[in-house]
Design a protein around this nucleic acid. Structure first.
Lengths: 343, 343
DNA sequence: GTTAGCACTCTCTACGCGCGAGTGCTAACG
DNA sequence: CGTTAGCACTCGCGCGTAGAGAGTGCTAAC
């Protein structure tokens, strides 16, 4: 694509800006008189024509104002959106909200989702911080009934998985503890693969338990997303683009699907920590998200545990603010995760 | 309220039935010709007038058909809705879907929510099975960093709570295990109150740990609902009564609120297992739910762990089907919980 | 008690009209 | 050659009107 002139860029930026505010097609005349440009509406019209031919703007109807296309938003975000940052008092507010949370990961996630939804007026997603690969840390077996035990598996990073276990023969708590200790000693610091190998080397009950543990670890590995917190659903439902019933339906259905979340999270995990990724209009990958955009970022301590945060809203989204919001919250979450690792 | 004649009841039932199907006010004439009643439309009109004066029907406009009032729905559900049951093949389908789940509580809950949403075309809620009072079962302390530990608290019934713990002085795993064993020995089978008392009797680090444990247990006690799974959001958004944007907003916001869920779940936990509760139009308690109904049931093993399942949809809801659906799913969940207790 | 008939009410849809916003084009200007 | 004023044209939107259709309440007859 050929580069735009400076004036064309200004106009594109203004159209995007205005449309994001008003949700209505913006015309040449209103633009001129609202921003006191030094040119006439006719000139603006000519430039708009050029932008329309370049595929950055479009007209909903023959004689309506202009609306940015997806391509237009992309150009805007990539080239025209300067490095924005949250105003200091908004930062203070958010950080204040965060630091009164109880020190539990779910609490942080719930809070991050709530804060993001509130400050971005969009739908927020927060996935649990997870290690790239599950690494065995500790096993505990707790007797519940004569021939039943609760298996509690702690992974490196603090992830806890549990499963009920039916035993052929009754075992008391002492025997179970002994068994758990044996398994822990052998498996500590192993990956799923390693645990499975160990299971092959030993026999009897401990082999069975190890196989179970390996299964749980494989499960943890396959789920990139794990638990996902959402918030701010009503925010997006209030947007005028979803006024007609059914218009938001496909997208909302998609947002409930675990497979989609996996997809999004793994995508968000690509870039380095600190980088924010903007996906506009489904980007070809998800047709249901034609009118939606996502702002995603990774957080956590790389190599130990990372997760994704992001907001989802209409393409007509205040990108600057959303991006700085997501970046800031990702930063806070990273701090919390790192702190909890460092002690 | 005076009793209705048999014919009036028939007409009320038909109006409810028709309106649930079509979502449009039902008139006397269409009723007669559709159901081949042995009377004329004028007669039906007279009866409808009586029902309107009794507060069971109302007219949206002076010359429109009749629509059931909340009171009308209540009468219908209480007196006219015979004991319905799911057709055998639907039962088989649901039970089949259930029995291929992995044996984990979250899995069951997710599944129950999904099944209910699918079969009732409404929004479903499933709360985790929880004991009425948290009872201490087992404590484990796992070293993560030199002066940090992960506290894993197992409650009777298999509920697991965890929290990170920062230590003043470094302790290795052996010391931590010893400490955990001490605490476990003293606190086993105690309620939150009991653990707090024990904390007062002992001193040093174990007292600190016990106080923490008591805090977690109190937390568990206060949260009647705990984790709640939802599904089928798009089902209700597709309903014609929520066509205007914003009409569903209040209710959806309410459905996200933990406080509300607590309220609903504690209400659902009132009746005996097997009983299904129908809340029509918010029942005065929740004004946001004026156009909504809920069908709730309790499940689990009383005395050990119980939770709530239910569906939420427009007042214009196929009550018969929803009720049998909820009852059946609650039954299945009860079986699963009981099985997992009995081993 | 039931029914046929009738006048009435009210919603919904279509249609026509004018307004206003916005456009593209053309010709004139610096 | 870029810019601008002017103008004819298009289209969506709001509004009032008219007619169809559905449904009602009332009355009088069976």
């Amino acid at each position: 694509m050929q580069d735009l002139t400076e004036r064309q860029e200004t106009i594109l930026a203004l159209v995007v800006h205005e449309y994001i505010e008003s949700a209505e097609p913006v015309g040449s005349k209103s633009l001129v008189q609202r921003f006191l440009l030094g040119v006439s509406s006719a000139t603006v019209r000519n430039e708009m024509l050029a932008l329309t031919e370049a595929g950055l703007l479009r007209q909903p109807h023959t004689s309506a104002g202009r609306v940015p296309t997806e391509e237009g938003y992309r150009y805007f975000v990539r080239r025209l959106l300067g490095d924005t940052d949250l105003p200091p008092d908004e930062k203070r507010l958010i950080s204040h909200q965060f630091h009164q949370a109880r020190p539990q990961v779910e609490e942080w996630m719930r809070l991050a989702a709530s804060v993001l939804a509130q400050h971005s007026s969009a739908l927020s997603l927060v996935s649990a911080p997870r290690p790239e690969r599950a690494v065995f840390k500790h096993l505990e077996l707790i007797s519940t009934r004569p021939n039943q035990a609760l298996l509690v598996l702690v992974l490196q990073g603090g992830d806890v998985r549990q499963q009920l276990l039916t035993l052929q023969e009754g075992m008391d708590q002492d025997h179970l503890s002994l068994l758990a200790d044996q398994v822990t000693r052998v498996c500590v610091a192993q990956t799923a693969q390693g645990v499975r190998t160990q299971a092959g080397l030993s026999g009897g009950l401990s082999s069975v338990v190890m196989r179970l543990v390996a299964g749980l670890m494989v499960q943890a590995d396959t789920l990139a997303a794990g638990e996902v917190f959402r918030d701010g659903l009503t925010n997006v439902l209030a947007q005028p683009e979803f006024a007609e019933p059914g218009s938001a339906q496909d997208a909302l259905r998609l947002l409930q699907e675990q497979a989609f979340l996996e997809d999004v999270v793994s995508r968000a995990l690509q870039p380095a920590i600190g980088g924010v990724q903007v996906v506009i209009g489904g980007e070809g990958a998800w047709s249901e998200l034609r009118n939606w955009s996502m702002v995603l970022a990774r957080y956590g301590a790389p190599g130990f545990a990372t997760g994704a945060v992001g907001v989802v809203g209409p393409t007509r989204m205040p990108y600057g603010h959303s991006i700085s919001c997501v970046r800031y919250v990702a930063g806070l979450m990273s701090e919390l995760v790192t702190e909890s690792l460092a002690g």
